[in-house]
Computed example of a mutant assay.
Amino acid sequence: MPTHFLGLTDAAVLPTTTYQLTARIIDDLVANLATGVIHGPAGTGKTFAVTDNLERLRAAGGGHQVVTCSLAFPSKPTMLRVAAELVHALTGSEPAASRSRFRLINHLIGLLASTPRLIVIDEAQRLNGECIELLRHLHDHQDTRFALLYVGGDGCWEVLSREPMLRSRVFRRLPFKRLDRAQVPALIRSYHPIYAAADDALLADIDAVYGKGTLRDWAVFTHTAAGLCREARTATIDADVAGNAYALLGGLGS
């Protein structure tokens, strides 16, 4: 079972189009040992969708015998840091401080030459051109066998697409977006039991005031509103509960 933001209990996974396409794209990347990009605004469900599918791959047998590895770097890391942290992620051991970037790259080629892998780079918008080129070099090497997925927030695709050598190699790309306002009531009604019998107008109002089409904001609101519903001994959110939730969350939003 996937872990929901804030440990929200009784929440269901929203079957958005992007959530469902994430599974297809990851499977395509693994099957073809290809490069892909998943990007979009913060809070739109990218990390949840990717993490859920990585768990699916780890739990699966049969045709999904692939080792997964996820890592993220601070803003504008050096090539040496990327190489060193990738070695650590793959082996569990810190490389010797005396090892040069070139020796680490040769070591990485050996590590990535046998078992098929999926390497996920989160917060990919933090990478600079040199680090992107390093990852492309590793992926393109004739001896390596791994799929490469970049995941990032605002500006991710702009950063990656500036590198022609990478852009021409992107096999799958999936942009996440905020929830369409017209679809919010139907989607959110299935998200948590407190919304099951709620009025469409109230759900649309919550989205306009606080949710803003982002799953993370809806999770925060739901965590708060569900607690208020329990205190009021009601199974369904109403305008009073919503108003009290707004107050606890800092007012009517911005």
Rank of each mutant, 00 (worst) to 15 (best):
residue 87 V to G: 01
residue 87 V to W: 06
residue 87 V to L: 09
residue 87 V to F: 04
residue 88 H to K: 14
residue 88 H to L: 12
residue 89 A to Y: 07
residue 90 L to E: 03
residue 90 L to M: 05
residue 91 T to I: 06
residue 91 T to Y: 07
residue 91 T to F: 02
residue 92 G to Y: 07
residue 93 S to I: 15
residue 93 S to W: 13
residue 95 P to Q: 01
residue 96 A to L: 03
residue 96 A to N: 04
residue 97 A to P: 14
residue 97 A to N: 15
residue 98 S to M: 10
residue 98 S to K: 10
residue 99 R to L: 13
residue 99 R to V: 14
residue 99 R to Q: 13
residue 100 S to M: 05
residue 101 R to A: 12
residue 103 R to W: 14
residue 103 R to D: 13
residue 104 L to Q: 03
residue 105 I to Q: 14
residue 105 I to N: 08
residue 106 N to W: 01
residue 109 I to M: 08
residue 109 I to N: 01
residue 110 G to L: 08
residue 110 G to V: 07
residue 111 L to I: 02
residue 113 A to P: 07
residue 114 S to L: 14
residue 114 S to M: 13
residue 114 S to Q: 14
residue 114 S to F: 13
residue 115 T to C: 12
residue 116 P to G: 05
residue 116 P to F: 06
residue 117 R to P: 03
residue 117 R to W: 00
residue 119 I to S: 05
residue 119 I to A: 05
residue 119 I to K: 02
residue 120 V to M: 10
residue 121 I to L: 00
residue 121 I to T: 03
residue 121 I to P: 03
residue 122 D to R: 15
residue 124 A to W: 08
residue 124 A to P: 04
residue 124 A to C: 11
residue 125 Q to I: 01
residue 125 Q to D: 00
residue 126 R to F: 15
residue 126 R to H: 15
residue 128 N to T: 03
residue 129 G to T: 05
residue 130 E to C: 11
residue 131 C to I: 07
residue 132 I to T: 07
residue 132 I to N: 02
residue 134 L to N: 12
residue 135 L to M: 09
residue 135 L to T: 07
residue 135 L to V: 00
residue 137 H to I: 01
residue 137 H to T: 11
residue 137 H to R: 09
residue 137 H to K: 06
residue 138 L to F: 08
residue 138 L to Y: 01
residue 139 H to V: 03
residue 140 D to C: 10
residue 140 D to I: 06
residue 140 D to A: 13
residue 141 H to A: 12
residue 142 Q to H: 13
residue 142 Q to C: 10
residue 142 Q to E: 12
residue 143 D to W: 09
residue 144 T to K: 11
residue 145 R to A: 00
residue 145 R to N: 10
residue 147 A to H: 08
residue 148 L to C: 08
residue 148 L to T: 02
residue 149 L to S: 00
residue 150 Y to E: 05
residue 150 Y to T: 02
residue 150 Y to I: 07
residue 151 V to N: 02
residue 152 G to P: 06
residue 152 G to A: 05
residue 152 G to Q: 09
residue 152 G to D: 00
residue 153 G to M: 04
residue 153 G to T: 00
residue 154 D to A: 10
residue 154 D to Q: 11
residue 154 D to T: 05
residue 154 D to W: 09
residue 155 G to S: 04
residue 155 G to A: 06
residue 155 G to D: 04
residue 156 C to A: 14
residue 156 C to W: 08
residue 157 W to I: 01
residue 158 E to T: 15
residue 159 V to M: 14
residue 159 V to A: 15
residue 160 L to H: 01
residue 161 S to V: 01
residue 163 E to W: 13
residue 164 P to Q: 06
residue 164 P to Y: 06
residue 164 P to S: 08
residue 165 M to R: 14
residue 165 M to T: 15
residue 166 L to A: 05
residue 166 L to D: 04
residue 167 R to Y: 13
residue 167 R to T: 12
residue 167 R to G: 11
residue 169 R to A: 02
residue 169 R to M: 04
residue 169 R to S: 11
residue 169 R to G: 08
residue 172 R to K: 12
residue 172 R to A: 15
residue 172 R to G: 06
residue 172 R to Y: 07
residue 172 R to E: 11
residue 174 L to R: 09
residue 174 L to Y: 03
residue 174 L to S: 03
residue 176 F to L: 14
residue 176 F to M: 12
residue 176 F to A: 14
residue 176 F to R: 08
residue 178 R to N: 02
residue 178 R to W: 04
residue 179 L to P: 12
residue 180 D to M: 00
residue 180 D to K: 08
residue 180 D to E: 11
